[in-house]
Amino acid sequence: MLSRTPAGRWRLTERLAALGVDRVVLLALPAAAVIGLLFIYPFLYGLGLSFQPRQGGGILANYLGFFNDGYERSTISKTLRLALPAALLNVAVSVPIAHKLRQPVRGKRLLTTVLILPVTLGTVLVAQGLIRYFGPAGWFNQALVALGLVDAPLSLTNNYIGVFASLIITGFPLSMLLILGHASGIDPDVERAAATLGAGPTRRFWTVSFPLMLPGITIALVLAFVAAFAVFPSAVMVGNPSGSTRVISIAAYQAAFERFDYSMASTIAMIMAAVELAVIGVVLGARSRLYRGATSGGKG
């Protein structure tokens, strides 16, 4: 029952209840507080800290220092050179395979189980395994030599190739499972209808399936890029952390935990976040120019 206060106005709780806010909604507060305190606050704190350089010299001194120092600035292009090709390759290979597997087929569960393994093992273990497996005496090089493809073992670790391989091993299953999860939800009748109307497999893929898969592909591309852009352990373990794979996360880590310049470290973290958001913006912007619509028929 709604009741009025003597002044003739609705009680605050009743006005809130009319909007759908009651005591039950308060149950979400602890979770919101945890994320607010441990994610939003540190981010804002880091943003503020990045404008308070340790050496002084104006609020933008850290940002100017980063962009004027060629060694530090080059970490952005080094990271992009690893992350963009890795993300694009992971997604480009996942799309046709996910399309092939979108309907229930035998062995799908086994394949997805195998794919989840590298994702759960994480980059540290994959990098640790690559040191042996991709090393000069490892099975990969042994196989190449035995097959007569190369004369001497290739150098595949402690360089760009090692890090790129680790990004494929952990990144491909992630994009594949994301796109597959989305593609499995697409109503197969839509494609059957196109086939009834005489569209061949190629035309069905490009004009029916692919546009319907696009939301999943976009999210997979964004997450694959973000994960690859933040590459850290494998860039140190199977890369060349002072040269070709000195990615931006290494620069941020060194500023914080080797030079103890938390202000500069926060600056680099903010630059990292800004580059990520810029690429996400480009991907989502390109996506919004293409088809938007329901993926699961209109049967409701």
Binding site: A28, A31, A32, I35, G36, L38, F39, I40, Y41, P42, F43, Y45, G46, L47, L49, V222, L223, V226, A227, F229, A230, F232, S249, A252, Y253, A256, Y262, A265, S266, I268, A269, M272, A273, E276, I280
Partner: peptide
Amino acid sequence: LLLLFLLPMLVPPITYGIPLATALY
């Protein structure tokens, strides 16, 4: 509120981890 819960999954751990570690220290 939903966006607040989604954000930590869209930003990679190393990016928010450095300001978070600084704040925790």
